[in-house]
Simulated scan of single mutants.
Amino acid sequence: MSRSITRPTIASEARRLRGLLAAALVGSAALVTLTGCSSFEFREDICSNGEYPVMTVNGTGSACVSDGEQPPAGYVRYPEGNVPRHVDDKWDVYWRTHTLDEDGNVITAPDAG
């Protein structure tokens, strides 16, 4: 007695693949919806670990100084609570047009433009 082997037709195989593709697309859409696109956002730090940001007096320049060290001549620490942490965050944008004068007062930066 011989057994006949049935093979899927091209049409049935194509339907199966379309179903798998549709399921994958629905799953991907659900993943993006549930996690939100912001979870994939990259935010560049102003300074590396072990450093803190400082700004120039009367200008919009900035630098990073190793923790435990004082700012170099011509630089000061940002006022507490107004320290930029990431590129383009609220304080990074603010300090592009503002600075501290030699007395520690916040002023409009002379080189802001």
Rank of each mutant, 00 (worst) to 15 (best):
I10V: 12
P72H: 10
T6Y: 04
V83D: 06
D67A: 11
C47T: 08
K90Q: 11
R16C: 09
Y78H: 04
D67Q: 11
A112R: 06
R18H: 07
V26S: 14
E13W: 04
T60W: 05
R16L: 09
G59V: 03
P84Y: 12
G59T: 08
V106S: 04
R18I: 09
V54E: 11
C37G: 13
A29M: 12
A22D: 08
L17C: 05
L25S: 12
M1D: 14
I10C: 01
R96D: 09
Q70C: 01
C37V: 06
A109C: 01
L20G: 10
A30I: 14
V65L: 03
T6I: 03
C47G: 07
G81Y: 03
R16Q: 11
C37L: 11
E80C: 00
T9I: 09
E80M: 00
R3L: 11
M55C: 05
E51I: 03
A63I: 09
S66D: 07
G74W: 08
A29N: 09
L17Y: 07
A29T: 10
P79T: 07
T60Y: 05
A14K: 03
P110I: 04
H86C: 01
R7Q: 12
M1P: 04
R18A: 13
I5V: 14
S38F: 12
D101M: 00
F40G: 13
L100R: 05
G59I: 00
E44S: 12
G104C: 02
E102W: 00
Y78G: 02
G19R: 14
D89E: 03
S62Q: 14
D88V: 01
S4I: 15
Y78T: 02
V65D: 08
G81T: 09
A63R: 13
V87F: 02
E80L: 07
H98A: 01
V65N: 06
S12M: 02
R15M: 02
G61I: 04
C37T: 10
D88A: 10
R96K: 15
E69D: 13
V76N: 04
R15P: 00
Y75K: 14
D103P: 00
E69Y: 10
P71I: 03
Q70F: 01
E41Q: 09
G59Q: 07
A11F: 08
A24K: 01
I107A: 01
S39G: 08
V93M: 06
